[in-house]
């Protein structure tokens, strides 16, 4: 596990891709691991099929503002999200992007790039909806401060009311973790 740095995360994509849940899973697991956390969604004049995002802060000290303007991690689920938030990433930040839906390459050269074929991996496992868990898997690998077993426990907890989806989501998480492992 790597040394912890304060995580200021933006998880962004299309409505329905599970970007909010991805952020919540990171926040909930981090909370149970003893970190201070906050989670806040984009809200207001959003439309079905439009963009959605959430901001997550994970910190050893109390969280000040929950609103993240310069993230050190971006989870970009689709191209508009990459285009909207790439420039806001801090130098040296981590850019995890869904290669299945983003055909362009990031412009920044001062970032750690983690391209993941998240949608394709989820499709191979049988359900596009697990794309977000693939992305979280990549996040956990790329940041290295969370024990993947704890995340899996949280997935079980999160899907307690829909137990038929637990296995799929855990598999998707593991697949994302492994895919990120292959990136140097």
């Amino acid at each position: 596990m790597s040394e912890f740095v304060t995580q200021e995360i933006i998880s962004a994509g299309m409505g329905g891709q599970g970007v909010l849940k991805a952020g919540l899973l990171i926040a909930e697991t981090s909370m149970k691991e003893g970190y201070n956390v906050s989670w806040i969604p984009s809200y207001g004049p959003e439309m079905r099929g439009g963009t959605a995002n959430c901001k997550v802060v994970v910190s050893k000290r109390p969280v000040g503002s929950p609103i993240v303007t310069s993230p050190n991690v971006l989870l970009a689920f689709n191209r508009p999200s990459l285009e909207k938030f790439e420039q806001s990433l801090k130098p040296g930040g981590i850019l995890i992007y869904n290669k299945s839906l983003i055909e362009i390459e990031p412009k920044r050269t001062d970032l750690k790039l983690v391209p993941i074929k998240a949608t394709e991996i989820a499709d191979e496992l049988g359900n596009t909806k697990a794309t977000n868990m693939v992305m979280v898997g990549a996040y956990v690998k790329a940041t290295g401060y969370l024990n993947p077993e704890k995340v899996k426990e949280e997935i079980k907890h999160m899907f307690a009311s829909k137990p038929q989806f637990v296995e799929l989501n855990i598999k998707a998480f593991e697949a994302g973790y492994e895919a990120a492992e292959e990136i140097k």
Binding site: L24, A27, M31, S38, W39, I40, P41, Y43, P66, I67
Partner: peptide, 10 residues
Amino acid sequence: DGALGQMMEP
């Protein structure tokens, strides 16, 4: 305020 209303926290 809107942030306190919208944010999740433990």
